[in-house]
Design a protein around this nucleic acid. Structure first.
Lengths: 165, 165
DNA sequence: AGATGCCGTTCATCCCACCGAAATATTGGC
DNA sequence: GCCAATATTTCGGTGGGATGAACGGCATCT
């Protein structure tokens, strides 16, 4: 887990998204900006300008702190899908309708590798076959629903789809 | 729990003893000193010289972080239901009539996962079965009553209900 | 007893999430 | 530019839930 370094307050939105997925981050605080106050142990900041040595030290501290914490009770941002179609990522979650749950299930099973359209069709409609476009439609809907939990489905043209967290 | 401010590396021994008793501390790092690298979330440091504003921000961050951590691994606001049907969330509370209390009880037992309609029916009417719509009506009333205590019951279509805090 | 208020039940109706299909738009490879 | 693959939008149908209203039981208050 690497520390992400970003500008503050310029990259405020990026910071928010990193916070959501629990990525450790170091904010470089502009000369006149107000430093952010956060309770997140995965965040730190330095007032710019600052020596490389100090920045390295902050990064090292952050890394240590995260490692410590990850080895603790919090196993880290895990993506999981339960039997009721609840997909949770960290503290966020969504309820997926049956078909979309089946699709995510198939994508999750082969997490990290591409899943073919045929496999997905089979997972979602085991006992029937559908016009090919149906899958596309459900993919679009699924993608929309996954936005709040910060999960992305990438398409690999003429090969299939793959999950990206 | 107050933050102790001390010089680094001059007060190295004092730092060690504060670390032992878990007191939050902010090290003022001398102009040429090497910054300490620590995994302790109750410690922070600033390179001197530094503005009061920045030091205040560090102290505030440390304080927040400690408070968060002290409140234990359960970060959620304590939601509890007693035997008299009093549901309290922080300093807010409501009195629930017997059936609604039973419903909340069941939802709370499986907090974090979906509770089926069947389970809820069984919790609310253990010795008899009701027309399915009865549950809906009680759910509607329950929701209305839960607004002031800031608790939401989400429905997971054709699966059941889940508590959301 | 009558009045009042809370609770539980049922009924009737309305809303909206989910799904499938078809039409249209966009993208990528050649 | 052309074609194939994929995206997106729209529409209608279906069924699960949500909601409001009405009724009866039961307690408390006057």
């Amino acid at each position: 887990m690497d520390v992400v370094i970003l500008q503050w307050p310029a990259e405020e939105e990026r910071r928010a998204s990193l916070l959501d997925c629990g990525t450790p981050r170091l904010l470089l605080v502009g000369r006149t900006a107000l430093p952010p106050v956060s309770s997140d142990p995965r965040e730190d900041w330095v007032r710019m300008p600052s020596s490389d040595r100090d920045i390295q030290a902050r990064v090292a501290g952050l890394t240590l702190r995260c490692r410590e914490q990850d080895s603790g009770p919090t196993p880290g941002p895990t993506l999981s899908l339960d039997n009721d179609g609840i997909l949770s990522n960290g503290r966020n979650w969504v309820a997926l309708p049956p078909i979309e749950a089946a699709l995510v299930g198939a994508l999750l099973d082969s997490s990290g590798s591409v899943v073919s359209r045929a496999t997905l069709q089979n997972a979602a409609w085991p006992d029937r076959d559908t016009p090919p476009n149906t899958l596309d439609v459900h993919m679009t809907r699924l993608r929309r629903r996954l936005v709040p939990v910060d999960v992305v489905v990438r398409t690999v043209r003429s090969r299939g789809y793959i999950l990206d967290i």
